[in-house]
Design a protein around this nucleic acid. Structure first.
Lengths: 191, 191
DNA sequence: AGGATTTAGTAACAAATGTTAATGTAAGAA
DNA sequence: TTCTTACATTAACATTTGTTACTAAATCCT
């Protein structure tokens, strides 16, 4: 599970083993809420197996804002970093195998990481990447039509479309599931 | 101009004076392109006076993605950080007084800053803030109607609406200027 | 001051998207 | 397996938003 991360970070064994102990394996059934809107995030998760969505409640309807699959890290970074109530819900969409780490332990690692110029740079790059991703999402919603956004998703994360029920995808794209059906139908006809 | 930044960072005078020298004052007429799509960003700007927009070209039409006013810092962080062609254009919308700093000099400051745990934290917080802002923008486009987004903008950045021509605002909200007219009319009637 | 350009509002029509309801199919639970 | 629930598609109609064209006002330039 952690081998790919290890080789990427190039940590020495001693530190590495220490860090590994901070993570705890859990299994969760589908449709489990890992973090509820309004509560403060105390854990981050790495997904070994399964699939998770992040969503916000909007007058009873929920809107999915992100999907995560294997080897990705999930959590409300905002709630985590600033110790404030999470604006989002985090929920499994399949039976999942997860590894969680507490805020305290992750903070310890981050503190260590920040002392090493090379790792620090990797970390800051990682945060920038997140920022750029959100920037891209944002621009994409005003620049492209739902059809175009669907095709992009199909291109960039086909796994998501294959595994996740369509109405979640629709909500993620900002359209109704009926309209997504129309879009798929349209693509089908054009071929 | 730099006093508020200075007091915020609590730097000692010696370092501070050193950093100040990295900034250069320039005046720019309205509608000047500071950074063109496709070119690599070499400068960051702080706005002393005036107003700037960031936009991307979409089949001949331009879409405004951000506005900046006095005391804000502008630049294509993505192009800056990764040394890649900028996806956006940056353009003045009023005659501006700006202070620019070169990538090299800013990198020097950042490197210094990262050595000090307190400043490092401020810096990382700043980046996280950007990320959260983009997250909010993104969520807002799928969660709220154009009317709601207009009211939010009016609430959060009234300055922008007062100073900037309506078709740029419309483009920023992702709607046509005609539709923004309708929205304003609608708000007017409801009062 | 005067002419050109930019900007904002309105109307009419067109296109995109949402809503509701009905139907069939697939997937999960007892 | 059988029942129930979740999911996807389609049609009909409603609503939202875009486009084009026209007008009037405001601003810019010389």
């Amino acid at each position: 599970m952690f081998k790919s991360i290890k080789s990427k970070l190039q940590l020495d064994n001693e530190k590495w083993d220490h860090y590994i102990d901070y993570f705890h394996r859990i299994e969760m059934p589908s449709k489990t809420i890992l973090l509820e809107e309004g509560s403060i995030s105390k854990k981050m998760y790495i997904i070994e197996k399964g699939c998770i969505r992040v969503w916000i409640n909007n007058n009873g309807k929920d809107i999915t804002t992100q999907f995560f699959i294997e080897n990705e890290m999930v959590g409300s970074i905002e709630s985590f970093r600033k110790n404030i109530p999470s604006p989002t819900n985090i929920e499994t969409m399949e039976p999942c195998v997860l590894w969680w780490i507490s805020k305290e332990n992750l903070d310890t690692i981050v503190e260590e990481v920040m002392k090493d110029p090379r790792l620090r740079n990797l970390f800051v790059d990682k945060i920038f990447e997140r920022t750029f991703d959100y920037m891209k999402y944002f621009i994409s919603t005003i620049k492209y039509s739902p059809l175009e956004r669907y095709l992009q998703l199909l291109e960039e994360r086909p796994e998501i479309i294959r595994r996740i029920p369509q109405h979640y995808i629709a909500s993620y794209l900002g359209i109704s599931s009926v309209h997504l059906s129309r879009i798929k139908n349209q693509i089908h006809k054009e071929k």
